[in-house]
Write a protein that binds this DNA or RNA. Structure first.
Lengths: 228, 228
DNA sequence: GTCTATACGATGATAGAC
DNA sequence: GTCTATCATCGTATAGAC
């Protein structure tokens, strides 16, 4: 249910208290980190009462869980959608590694590009992996485990001869590259003396796909050599 | 100056207040994260008064800065030492990419293996990259910028034809893989259904070197193709 | 069902006595 | 150098207004 102003020209829906809290929390968590952001900052920015957080969500932990799940669920859906299309097109034939990686990465940067300005969510998503605390594992189980369950076999199809465990290593390394880019892009600015252009999402994805596929293929080659 | 018990058989040096605080802080920061760890936890574990933290260090920010720099400085020295040896052995000839990456990674896992039990420091180091806050940039400037200044050209020598900016991208991706492994090893356990063995530091470094070198070489190849 | 006012214990930080 | 006392701010809980 979204309220609307019925009078005058104004017909824009007014975000409910709950959504205003989620929006403000997402922005602040992404910018300053989870622990460094106080509930009072959030409620002040969202223009709601402090106790409203404890009414709609029970705790700060549950709040960031809600913040993340709101965007992670559509992200998971889009990733699986792209992978479905890929597998349908491939039939019984092989999958192209680059295509699988693209299905994993593109939805993240679609969100980054959408909505005019940059969404703060991808940075928050990148940071979340290395954050301590119980809610991280809950996010994993609810929104990442499903993606992993589909993409691990898909990567296996694209990388014949690699064991499931070895693919898990490679996927872990790959996710690390992505997460670090999302969370710590500032460091790339320093590394490149400000020369790296991070604004073009498509170019970033292309570079990542090249790096990850190269790394994964090298791991597959390395196993073959070890077997010789 | 380290105090010693002068009487009886006991000649073990007793860690000073300052060091006891640093040790406790390192352990707790690594385990629970920076913001989630209270100064009262630290002083209680170190068996010192709360105000001692503010006497020896000024603030919580300065404390973690001291915690990190204490280990980052030797780490930086060791990395440059290995790179020095590599460049001396190579003379005017080419550098082997795998060797350069190894010089970057091995010191991190040396620390992880040293001292009997696992040091909590590498995990803290991995987490630090994606932590928001001013002290991250200070760490970068004081202990990482120097490493980058030497390893970026070295990677360039090992990857002829790649531009400095492109190498910065590749190094960023590589550091991300390492940081994510150090900070979020739990996720690999989930991805691999507990099959991935993370205890053997040398095997981990080997796998990382294969992945990173494969990724970097693929980026170099990709540039050549684009130039055609 | 929604939201608000208010209070409680714990935290980071500081000032000043010893 | 070390400690006690103190302060504003934090996350959380509850009682009650609409």
């Amino acid at each position: 249910m979204s309220r609307t102003f019925e009078f005058g020209d104004e017909t824009q829906p007014v975000a409910e208290t709950k959504d205003r809290i989620l929006d403000a929390a997402e922005r602040l968590f992404a910018g300053q980190g989870y622990a460094a952001t106080s509930l009072r900052q959030i409620t002040s920015e969202a223009q709601v009462n402090l106790a409203a957080v404890n009414y709609h969500f029970q705790s700060k932990d549950s709040l960031i869980l809600a913040v993340l799940m709101r965007k992670m669920k559509p992200l998971e859906r889009r990733r699986l959608e792209l992978l479905d299309a890929l597998e349908e097109a491939a039939g019984d034939g092989p999958l192209v590694l680059e295509d699988v990686l693209r299905a994993l990465l593109v939805p993240v940067f679609e969100r980054k590009a959408a909505g005019g300005g940059l969404s703060p969510f991808p940075q928050l998503m990148g940071r979340m992996y290395s954050e301590p605390g119980d809610w991280v594992l809950q996010i994993f189980k609810r929104a990442i485990a499903g993606v992993a369950a589909r993409f691990l076999p898909a990567l296996g199809r694209a990388l014949p001869g690699m064991s499931r465990t070895e693919i898990a290593w490679g996927m872990h390394f790959s996710i690390g590259s992505m997460a670090h880019f999302l969370a710590a892009g500032v460091l790339l600015t320093h590394l490149s003396d400000g020369e790296a252009d991070m604004s073009d999402g498509e170019a970033v994805v292309n570079r990542m796909v090249v790096f990850m596929s190269g790394g994964l293929r090298a791991m597959a080659e390395s196993r073959k050599e070890a077997a010789r």
